[in-house]
Amino acid sequence: MKENELSYQARVHHLVQLIKESGKTVALTGAGASTESGIPDFRSQDSGLWNQVDPQKSVSIRALKKDPQSFYRFNFQWWDVCLQAKPNACHHSLARLEEQGWLLGVITQNIDGLHQRAGSQRVWEVHGHLRSCHCLHCGRMFDLARLKVEYHCTCGGLLRPDVVLFGDAMPEDYYTAEQVLSGCQLLLVIGSSLQVQPVAGLPRLARRVVIINHDPTPWDESAELVFRESAGQVLADVVKQLGNNTGPYYTG
Score class of each variant (00 low, 15 high):
residue 26 V to R: 05
residue 26 V to Q: 14
residue 26 V to A: 09
residue 28 L to N: 01
residue 29 T to H: 03
residue 31 A to C: 02
residue 32 G to N: 02
residue 33 A to S: 08
residue 35 T to C: 12
residue 35 T to H: 10
residue 37 S to N: 00
residue 39 I to W: 03
residue 40 P to W: 09
residue 41 D to T: 05
residue 42 F to Q: 04
residue 42 F to G: 11
residue 43 R to A: 11
residue 43 R to D: 10
residue 44 S to F: 05
residue 46 D to C: 11
residue 49 L to A: 10
residue 49 L to C: 07
residue 49 L to N: 12
residue 50 W to R: 00
residue 50 W to T: 01
residue 50 W to F: 04
residue 51 N to Y: 07
residue 51 N to W: 01
residue 54 D to G: 04
residue 54 D to V: 15
residue 56 Q to S: 04
residue 56 Q to G: 07
residue 57 K to C: 09
residue 58 S to E: 04
residue 59 V to W: 03
residue 61 I to M: 11
residue 61 I to C: 10
residue 61 I to V: 08
residue 61 I to H: 10
residue 62 R to W: 14
residue 63 A to Y: 06
residue 64 L to M: 04
residue 64 L to K: 02
residue 64 L to D: 01
residue 65 K to T: 13
residue 65 K to V: 03
residue 66 K to A: 07
residue 67 D to R: 01
residue 67 D to S: 08
residue 69 Q to K: 15
residue 69 Q to R: 08
residue 69 Q to P: 08
residue 69 Q to A: 08
residue 69 Q to V: 01
residue 70 S to L: 12
residue 70 S to P: 10
residue 71 F to A: 03
residue 72 Y to L: 15
residue 72 Y to C: 11
residue 74 F to Y: 14
residue 74 F to N: 12
residue 74 F to H: 14
residue 74 F to C: 13
residue 75 N to C: 06
residue 80 D to V: 01
residue 81 V to Q: 11
residue 82 C to L: 10
residue 83 L to M: 12
residue 83 L to K: 02
residue 83 L to C: 13
residue 86 K to E: 14
residue 87 P to E: 04
residue 88 N to F: 13
residue 89 A to I: 08
residue 89 A to Q: 05
residue 91 H to K: 11
residue 92 H to N: 02
residue 93 S to N: 00
residue 93 S to W: 02
residue 93 S to K: 03
residue 93 S to M: 04
residue 94 L to H: 01
residue 96 R to C: 03
residue 97 L to M: 09
residue 99 E to W: 06
residue 100 Q to K: 12
